[in-house]
């Protein structure tokens, strides 16, 4: 019977392939699953680093996007259910740490062995026709009319929203927070004058800043930045108390399951380090105003644990967490 022969051959081939997994890693293409949609910051940075990494690996790394759920939970659940053999990676960013408390899945970040490419620092800017020339002026105006000045940022619980909240806490100002479905529409709204204040990352804003459509006031990180010859001061200079709440920085990168064998992790770390050191990645990070991180393993795990605790408890305090972080054993931020 032809069917039977085909069947027998198929099973033989499948078993050989299963056996092949035990050989040197990697022996077949690696599948990277980005949990955010195509074309976004996480997607682009991952496509770049993974493309550079495959130069140092004998196989290809295919990037796909598996979106949905909350905090990228659909993509993360998928990778979590795959065998821990290093052939499936998850492309993640700091925002995935909310998946647990928002009821997306019942795991914590410690199931991952992350690699952090870096992130772009957040800054606060105003529309070009807004009257305020410095953060101090803006804070003063906001204090005079609490909750009146409209500030745009991506949806509640996002990193930019958390930066805005920290800014309010550190300066005592209160804004009327208008949420948007992502940074891009929030920035467009600031350009059109729908909101006067905007908090997004430097990478996302740089083109609009250079076009003069937005006016930068202050970086929400300890050090200032120079953009096209113009200095953007740090918000910490005028409001030192901010250092208690900030910085909250992006952590864009990817992760392999922590349960993966050590040699797999070692191979990935080696390829990742080489890719991070490459000219192409360094140039790209610089041109797009990213701060390179390059952390992997324990350092990266620690960073994600810190972000997880911060995001989870902030959401909980805002009443927007559907799961109590305590039930997931997430420690309070110190």
């Amino acid at each position: 019977m032809r069917a039977k022969t085909t069947l027998a051959l198929g099973i033989a081939a499948a078993l050989t392939a299963t056996g092949a997994i035990a050989q040197d890693y990697p022996s077949r293409d690696i599948n990277a699953v980005v949990v955010w949609s195509a074309g976004g910051g996480t997607d682009t940075a991952n496509r770049l680093i993974l493309a550079e990494m495959q130069e140092n690996l004998p196989v290809r790394i295919n990037v796909t996007n598996r979106t949905g759920g909350v905090g990228g939970s659909v993509g993360m659940s998928y990778v979590f259910e795959q065998p821990a053999d290093g052939y499936t990676l998850a492309g993640i960013s700091e925002s995935v740490v909310t998946a647990g408390v928002q009821g997306g899945w019942d795991q914590r970040m410690d199931v991952w062995y992350p690699f952090i490419i870096g992130g772009s620092p957040d800054l606060v800017s105003v529309s070009s026709d807004a009257p305020w020339q410095s953060l101090a002026e803006l804070v003063e105006a906001a204090k005079a009319t609490p909750g009146e000045i409209r500030a745009g940022a991506s949806a509640a619980g996002s990193i930019h929203h958390l930066n805005l909240l920290a800014l309010e806490k550190g300066t005592g100002a209160t804004f009327n927070y208008i949420p948007y479905d992502g940074s891009a529409p929030a920035q467009n709204a600031a350009v059109a004058g729908e909101v006067q204040v905007i908090v997004t990352s430097l990478a996302e804003q740089q083109q609009l800043l250079q076009a003069g459509r937005l006016r930068p006031l202050a970086m929400l990180v300890p050090s200032g930045v120079e953009l096209n010859g113009e200095a953007i001061p740090s918000a910490f200079d005028s409001f030192p108390e901010l250092s208690e709440h900030l910085p909250i920085k992006q952590a864009i990168g990817f992760a392999v399951l922590d349960a993966a064998p050590d040699d797999v992790k070692a191979t990935l770390v080696e390829a990742f380090d080489a890719a991070m050191a490459s000219d192409k990645v360094q140039t790209w990070l610089g041109e797009n105003y990213y701060e390179a991180s390059g952390a992997s393993g324990d350092a990266a795990k620690e960073e994600f644990a810190r972000l997880e605790s911060l995001f989870a408890w902030t959401l909980h305090d805002l009443g927007a967490a559907s799961v109590d972080p305590a039930t997931l054993d997430i420690p309070k931020p110190n």
């Binding site: 195509a38 074309g39 976004g40 997607d43 682009t44 496509r47 770049l48 790209w284 797009n288």
Partner: peptide, 9 residues
């Protein structure tokens, strides 16, 4: 959006 990502790469 995707095209923008590609150009940036």
């Amino acid at each position: 959006v995707m095209l923008l990502g590609a150009l940036m790469l």
